[in-house]
């Protein structure tokens, strides 16, 4: 499934990185501690976090993520949006809790 399909299905708002909407989503990861995410997030994952500063982009690029979803009504900094556009990594917004979104994502892309 590609990022665009998930975005439509879950009615996520696109904040930046639109040119990456055709990236394929292979897995998911939740985390706000960057070292944990850096050490463990799987390749091609969609990452749920409350962090909106631009260092999240370096993590997403290095881990070859499909997209980042900023949850809980948090928003990305302007620098973060710019970097996402440059790197072509979508930043999506979800106003409610990570728990609910993770549950819905699991139902769509979850795997053992």
């Amino acid at each position: 499934m590609i990022v665009k399909e998930l975005t439509d299905q879950l009615e996520l708002q696109i904040a930046a990185g639109e040119k990456g909407l055709s990236r394929e989503v292979l897995d998911g990861y939740c985390g706000d501690l960057l070292s944990d995410v850096m050490g463990r997030a799987p390749e091609g994952c969609i990452w749920l976090t409350v962090q909106g500063h631009q260092n999240i982009l370096a993590i997403a690029v290095l881990r070859e993520m499909a997209a980042i979803i900023i949850v809980g009504g948090h928003t990305p900094d302007e620098d973060t949006r710019q970097k996402a556009d440059e790197e072509g990594i979508p930043i999506l917004l979800w106003p409610k809790s990570a728990f609910e979104l993770a549950g819905r994502l699991w139902a769509i892309i979850g795997k053992k």
């Binding site: 706000d32 501690l33 070292s35 944990d36 850096m38 050490g39 260092n55």
Partner: peptide, 16 residues
């Protein structure tokens, strides 16, 4: 607050 400082940096480097 930015999500750094989890105390995993050096251990991650050693493990990897």
């Amino acid at each position: 607050e930015m999500g750094f400082g989890a105390g995993m940096g050096l251990p991650n480097m050693k493990e990897n």
